[in-house]
């Protein structure tokens, strides 16, 4: 399995991370090493078998009752209060 700069560029696009050439080259090299290492398990588990429930834990649902949530002002405190009760980004058009 060969990882190319083009592969990493595509991954960066999918992950929404912009990257310069230097970072891309370094990452391609590192990714190649990591992927060939990850490949090890490929040959080891070819056969068919059942999944074990991973943590022996069943998802717990709460009753569907409307409860009080966080205050809008508090939530917007992470972006200096937002604008008119909304999250805001710069005007783009």
């Amino acid at each position: 399995m060969v990882v190319t700069v083009e592969d990493v560029k595509k991954l960066a696009k999918l992950s929404k991370i912009s990257m310069n050439e230097e970072e891309l080259n370094q990452l391609t090299e590192d990714m190649q090493k990591i992927i060939s290492f990850a490949h090890e398990i490929n040959d080891a588990c070819d056969g068919e078998f059942e999944f074990t429930d991973i943590n022996n834990i069943i998802n717990v649902f709460r009753d569907d009752i409307v409860e009080e949530s966080f205050d809008r002002k508090e939530i917007l405190s992470g972006v200096n209060g937002g604008e008119d009760g909304f999250f805001a980004v710069k005007k783009l058009i």
Binding site: L11, S15, L27, D30, I35
Partner: peptide
């Protein structure tokens, strides 16, 4: 970033 990209892969 490394791990996000590896996970995406």
């Amino acid at each position: 970033k490394h791990r996000i990209l590896l996970g995406t892969y």
